[in-house]
Design a binder for these strands. Structure first.
Lengths: 202, 202
DNA sequence: CGTTTGTTTAACCAAATGGTTAAATCAAAT
DNA sequence: ATTTGATTTAACCATTTGGTTAAACAAACG
């Protein structure tokens, strides 16, 4: 065990994450990943036999950290409206720290339709069932308008995700600077729950 | 002028569209494009000097057809609620025929932040200004709740786009088949206007 | 001290790939 | 019939790139 030992693998994964994100699997260059990790190609292959393996490691790591956070929100015991507020708040916060991820994922879904199945294992998979039944109960109790739980959750997800997925597009069309856009996102964190709660309040 | 003449270029563009979509710029292979167009590599380069040029042609074509349709909806003279219904309906229809496009675009936005500026020229650019002022008027007249026009339009876009962008992901999580998902999308076309109109109705 | 393990250097290889070229063919237009 | 442009065939080239290898080096560890 010399020099870094523990740190190097993490350095590689961080660099690979950046490069895969910005170039995609096919466009990423092992040399660039090595450069950005501050090491050389030989050592890169010493840690990860090949590109696919490195790619898999990066994704597995990302999902392993994110899915539990999402399920934690889905499964919390809060009342529905509070949960919606928590969701918008926490999900947006997660996305701000992982703004690269949605594009990253969509990219690979196109070339590998089996991608979802490969990385969303039964144990590690978003599970909105509890939220679904919570919504059904509220509908039955007449506390919210009749709404299809699936439609509702996908709406909520879309409202949160879209501004990250389409950030550059939106910025160009609206002419917002990066700073203005950050403000817009912060504002949106408050806007979303208000919007969807109004949409389902009887 | 022999054989196809007019048809060949279109064949190439169609094939390129498919391949670029599923592999991305870096992942696409000129040979595969030639194959899918039913021609050979030499002829492919006879029509398009190189990969970048072909790529640009595909995108320019796609934008040239889509942006006017979007602006047409933005600029129509309908009252707001009708316009929202038209938008969800027509925009979803457009997306069903171009389901590949959003992923296609997001992909390239990551590796080329200047992408938006390159393809959204001032003349050919989504322009929601009229819709914005329409919303402001309705707010001022008290006919809808106070809402930031930008937030609202981005919400509307996100609600329409997200189910296309994340289709494979959603299908895997929910376990829907392709047919079920098509039904879900058709259902959603009705759900979205209802949802957003409720959200802003006073 | 010698072993082990992480790390560098540097050269190297095979395959894939974008792109080119030259010659031949084929069908329509003049 | 000749010309012209579309198309094919097939070989070819330069470059990029993923991946390998071997030798040397450095530092912890027993």
């Amino acid at each position: 065990m010399v020099k870094e030992d523990i740190g190097t693998e993490k350095l590689i994964l961080e660099a690979a994450k950046r490069v895969f994100h910005e170039r995609g699997l096919a466009g990423a260059r092992m040399q660039q990943i090595a450069d950005e990790a501050g090491i050389n190609k030989a050592l890169l292959h010493y840690y990860f036999r090949n590109k696919e393996q490195l790619f898999k490691a990066v994704f597995t790591d990302a999902f392993a950290r994110l899915i539990p956070q999402i399920n934690e929100i889905f499964d919390s015991d809060e009342p529905l409206f509070d949960k919606i507020r928590s969701f918008a708040d926490r999900y947006t916060a997660i996305l701000m720290e992982n703004h690269y991820l949605p594009g990253f994922i969509i990219q690979e879904l196109n070339s590998n339709p089996n991608f979802a199945a490969e990385y969303l294992t039964p144990e590690r998979k978003p599970n909105p069932q509890k939220l679904f039944s919570q919504i059904r109960q509220e509908v039955e109790a007449g506390r919210i308008r009749p709404v299809e739980p699936q439609q509702f959750v996908i709406s909520l997800l879309g409202l949160c995700l879209f501004p990250f997925i389409a950030a550059e597009m939106i910025r160009h069309v609206t002419g917002m600077s990066k700073e203005q856009y950050m403000l817009f996102l912060a504002e949106r964190k408050k806007h979303i729950p208000e919007f969807v709660i109004n949409a389902i309040k009887p």
